[in-house]
Design a protein around this nucleic acid. Structure first.
Lengths: 161, 161
DNA sequence: GCCGAAGCGTTATGAAATAACATAACTAGG
DNA sequence: CCTAGTTATGTTATTTCATAACGCTTCGGC
């Protein structure tokens, strides 16, 4: 997470212990329902994302992959990320080249992020595009996916300036 | 531009001749008003963006930079892009790693894009965030900049399916 | 058991962006 | 002027991010 921040690390801590196991189990169950396979590399990358305090870069995941300190090969992680994104278990944040586990219930939703430029935290929220694309769609556009990333200061960092 | 598209190229053609010269002159004038310098590399990169039919990658700009076919050095182009973005003459599209000239009047506006996944065209539009961040801001967030990129099909590509 | 599809390991390479440092060009103050 | 400070450029090298390609393995339906 953003090491350039003066605040206490982990205003947004990652999961551990039972909470982590529960989250992984929920993903597992979701996969079984849809006949998808949460294979070891996919599970491992999901764990790493869930454990993290904030957005992780692909090469952070690569470096952290092996419990013995052995890094993964890049395609291993990129393939797992592709899977996790497809299932809605993770999101890519384009403006950071980084990844976060999904915090919202249910797949298929539209994700959006508030990204703190001070501490690096990325807060997921549910955007409202009800009016946003009305004009585009009536002009013949077919909107399929939307990336919305807002950058600024989170409450904690704003206060301390 | 998207060569993987079956449609006539240039549904969204770039500028040339007088229109190009006018656009560059307008940027020049804008710079003079604000005491900024539209130096040769900056002007050259702006020209290339304006001439293009669609979003250009940084290394497309690097390759096209020299009129004699000589490529630029990467920092030359990246620095020019940084300037053009700062002045509002160009925008970066995060989900494409690509750049477009700004089509809106006046600097300082918020940009958003409709990106066609078939022909690669990127249509700029003025987003409306009036309601979008109300909850975040009342929770103490200070939103500074917003990236909004919608992907789908433009009217032309949608019709032909 | 056989077959096709999906997934993985591995090597190598491609694409995007920046660090660092030296030189040159503007410009405000004397 | 001219000169000190700032802004911009040129250049080399490197870092960071991502994917191509290929062969082997595993899974699940027939």
């Amino acid at each position: 997470m953003g090491a350039d921040c003066h605040h206490a690390e982990s205003a947004h801590p990652g999961l551990e212990g039972v909470a982590l196991a529960d989250a992984v189990a929920a993903a597992q169950a979701q996969c079984e329902r849809t006949r998808e396979r949460l294979t070891p590399p996919r599970r491992r990358v999901l764990e790493l994302l869930l454990e993290s305090d904030g957005p992780m870069k692909a090469y952070d995941l690569i470096a952290a992959y092996g419990q013995d300190g052995e890094p993964a090969k890049p395609p291993t992680v990129y393939r797992a990320l592709e899977f996790l994104e497809r299932l809605g278990f993770a999101h890519r944040i384009e403006s950071l080249n980084a990844y976060v586990p999904c915090k919202m219930e249910g797949a298929g939703h539209r994700a959006a992020f508030l990204i703190c430029e001070c501490c690096g935290a990325a807060q997921e929220f549910e955007p409202d595009f009800s009016a946003q694309f009305a004009a585009a769609e009536s002009a013949g556009y077919a909107v399929r996916t939307v990336t919305l990333e807002a950058r600024g200061l989170c409450p904690a960092c704003k206060v301390e300036g």
